[in-house]
Amino acid sequence: MPTTLDALPPGKTARIIRIDAPGRWRNRLLQMGFTPGSLVRVVANHGVGPIIVSSMGITIAIGRGIARRILVEPL
């Protein structure tokens, strides 16, 4: 069942389906390799504040507002 990135617990891996964040952030995410189809693993998610995810060897902190607009399929 698809959900949004901010709803995933730490340790969970998911596949990105769609990124609906505003243009500037979407562009940056795409360039960092967070493209639809790629796998992300949640490193930290405390329910408030930025969440931390990693994908292909890099770790990034994503503001909750952006994470809420990333649609993912949990694996």
Binding site: W25, R28, M32, I52, T59, I60, A61, I62, I66
Partner: peptide, 10 residues
């Protein structure tokens, strides 16, 4: 207003 957002590589 846009919500302050963060996208940072660690």
């Amino acid at each position: 207003r846009e919500e302050p957002e963060l996208l940072l590589e660690l």
